[in-house]
Nucleic acid binder design. Structure first.
Lengths: 185, 185
DNA sequence: CGCCCATATTTACCACCAGTACGAAAGGTC
DNA sequence: GACCTTTCGTACTGGTGGTAAATATGGGCG
């Protein structure tokens, strides 16, 4: 009897080995088990992907809280969170790419994005109301930040330009300071 | 003899009809032609997707120049460009979703992103050097803006929350003004 | 000990879609 | 009219997600 944890761990191993194109058979083989077992345990590929996403998000979360300190300014905390995100996905590069294999026009994508955005929405919802802005716009901010991180990270992994810290500098200048204010226009 | 324009137009029609899951057979049928013809004309699905992306980008471009005016402030121009982007993809919703079916861990995705980012990189590269920032960071800004627009647009099309103008307001507050400066922290 | 049933697992399959080989037909040339 | 070239359609392959039916495994009971 093989459970979710084993299959998940096997999936990570298979994806580390075969890259983001790892197939369900590869994952089953890595778990020393056959495909129907994987399907009985995990549901379908979307569910497995969702589980892997949660696995990644949790890693990013712990890396983030480890990097953020109370005495930092909000901007410094934002920068630390971005750096934690980048270094974590770099460590689990293939899993990140596998999770991001899901096309943006799928139901799973919407769930994953809404899930990831939830924390940001709560955070910026409060900040916005305190600043007199309608709370509703926080959703757009959440989506925007998720999307920006996603694409920057993907292209960064692909082109390998710059260090994580430099990339985090520029992301912070864009998302926190704003492109317009940074360039003085 | 059927050429690229006809196939492209047929692809748009087929995708409008069948949604973003339209298959190569659907497109061939819409062109009143068989699949090998489509492949001889367009190469493969990636090439067709790339052509559709260029088609969309060009529409967005004309909508953008129509919406931007010289007497506007840079911020107003940015807002107008975002609004043009959103309204254009809303008109061609399924084509947008089809193009975004391509997984972010593919070669095509990287090309499309680099392509779309090129203009932004040139623009913000100049602005950044004028502001004393290293030009290199413009790539990250380009990727970030592309990603933010992509995900916000996808979720907006899916959830249909708010008007294009409102979404553009919030995107502008995020990407132009900055989340930190807008919320006063 | 031997039989039988329930459960767990594998084998073997289907459906679907991108991409292509090969044959048929059409049209031009001598 | 016969031959050749070019163009197109049919029918296939390969590979992947997903599943149904056959099969092994193990435990209770006569």
């Amino acid at each position: 009897m093989v459970g979710r944890p084993q299959v998940l761990e096997a999936a990570v191993r298979a994806i580390d080995l075969h890259g983001p194109e790892a197939t369900m058979d590869d994952i089953a083989a890595a778990a020393h088990v056959t495909k129907p077992i994987v399907y009985r345990t995990m549901g379908d590929k979307a569910a497995l992907t969702e589980a892997l996403s949660e696995w990644l998000v949790s890693r990013i979360g712990t890396a983030t809280v480890a990097a953020m300190h109370a005495e930092q300014t909000p901007r410094q905390q934002f920068h630390a969170a971005v750096t934690a995100y980048l270094t974590t996905i770099a460590e689990h590069r293939n899993v990140f790419l596998f999770v991001n294999t899901v096309g943006p026009s799928t139901e799973l994508f919407h769930r994953l994005v809404d899930q990831s955005a939830a924390g940001l929405v709560a955070l910026f919802g409060d900040l916005r109301t305190r600043a007199g802005l309608p709370r509703s716009g926080a959703a757009t901010w959440g989506y925007g930040i998720i999307g920006a991180m996603q694409v920057v990270a993907t292209m960064w992994l692909h082109h390998a330009y710059g260090e994580a810290g430099e990339i985090a500098d520029d992301i912070t200048r864009l998302l926190w300071d704003g492109a317009g204010t940074t360039t003085g226009t």
